[in-house]
């Protein structure tokens, strides 16, 4: 998946305006980034990438860039 497509998926999880995410955002700044959003994100990644994230690794993530890094080469430029 392209990085831009990933951002659109993430905007849905975070209930953010389309086009509002560009990579440097801090996840804690989004009111919607709660435990339920984390589950929604895990479900989205499982569905779109067929990857089951490690919850403990996800718990350490701070920014959108960290989320991209978590998916490694599954996300292309």
């Amino acid at each position: 998946m392209k990085k831009s497509e990933f951002y659109r998926e993430l905007e849905e999880v975070l209930e953010a305006d389309s086009g509002s995410i560009s990579g440097d955002e801090v996840l804690a700044d989004f009111d919607a980034w709660d435990s339920l959003a984390v589950l929604t994100f895990i479900a989205m990644v499982d569905e779109k990438f067929e990857v089951t994230l490690t919850a403990s690794k996800l718990a350490l993530v701070k920014t959108v860039t960290d989320l991209v890094a978590l998916l490694g080469d599954k996300i292309t430029v």
Binding site: I42, A43, D46
Partner: peptide
């Protein structure tokens, strides 16, 4: 309960 750990356990 650690919800995300339980969820990923279920998926795996």
């Amino acid at each position: 309960m650690n919800g995300s750990e339980i969820f990923t356990f279920t998926l795996r």
